[in-house]
């Protein structure tokens, strides 16, 4: 399993995808950071500025389009190039293969999220931010990304076309994002709405479990798809 993770992460950086992914995310984060400072009319709320940036639309929206960029190739590319034959005939079990693919994509997301600590450093230099609240926000964001990454991996196992895999992820993300606007009970299904709770500085156990359960569900679905394809291939 470790071999696959190592190779996957390495491959992200051997192609432009890894750099583009981190670069665009940091660009969007910087724009949000700049906007936040601009709105404050000179009186900067150093205590909460880091948390606010995460609630900005560009940060979230960019991630909605960026995570599929990382996950879309996980299984689709292997299937298209025929390398899945090498992978699936190796002694590594399907469960481990799926986990390895998920972990390597999530490692990329975590690397990007860790880069935001630079901004935290800048804020710390000029003021005293609410560090616990900032860390809880980061945790919530990581959980949101984890759930979304797992769904992206699942989408990638469904098709050999990377673009279709990415579209499935983006459309699902956008639907769960705008659902509360149309249906009142939609907020219960909105992964983003759950994240907003974390920006208040509280670790919501129920939502944490929901994120974890959603992740596990997506991974189990991926394993099932891979197993089923073995007999239908």
């Amino acid at each position: 399993m470790w071999a696959i993770i190592k190779k996957e992460v390495k491959t992200y950086f051997l192609s432009p995808i890894g750099y583009v992914f981190i670069g665009i995310f940091l660009l969007a984060f910087s724009i949000s950071f700049n906007l936040e400072l601009g709105y404050s009319n000179g009186i900067i709320d150093f205590q909460n500025v880091f948390v606010y940036i995460f609630t900005y639309l560009p940060t979230i929206l960019v991630f909605a389009f960026l995570i599929p960029m990382i996950t879309m190739r996980a299984f689709s590319e292997e299937r298209k190039n025929g390398t899945e034959q090498l992978l699936l005939t190796s002694p590594v079990s399907i469960t481990k293969i799926v986990l390895a693919k998920f972990i390597s994509a999530f490692v990329m997301v975590i690397i990007a999220v860790l880069f935001t600590l630079i901004y935290m450093g800048i804020i710390c230099y000029f003021g005293t931010p609410d560090i616990p609240a900032a860390l809880v926000t980061l945790l919530g964001f990581a959980l949101l990304c984890m759930a979304y990454t797992a769904f992206g991996i699942f989408a990638s196992s469904l098709t050999e076309n990377q673009i279709i895999a990415a579209m499935i992820s983006i459309v699902t993300f956008v639907i769960t994002w705008v659902l509360p606007e149309f249906i009142a009970s939609g907020s219960d299904f909105s992964l983003i709405n759950m994240f907003y709770k974390f920006t208040t500085g509280q670790i919501d156990i129920a939502y944490t479990i929901t994120y974890l359960a959603f992740t596990v569900l997506c991974l189990i679905l991926t394993i099932t798809v891979m197993q089923r394809r073995k007999s239908a291939r």
């Binding site: 190779k7 005939t89 190796s90 002694p91």
Partner: peptide, 24 residues
């Protein structure tokens, strides 16, 4: 197993590929 059409990871070098297969 050597599959038909010899699929391999194009972005790896020969040695990296053999090493990856050994690790798998």
């Amino acid at each position: 197993y050597m599959p038909e059409g010899v699929p391999s990871y194009q972005e790896l070098t020969t040695k990296e590929f053999v090493k990856y297969m050994a690790e798998l």
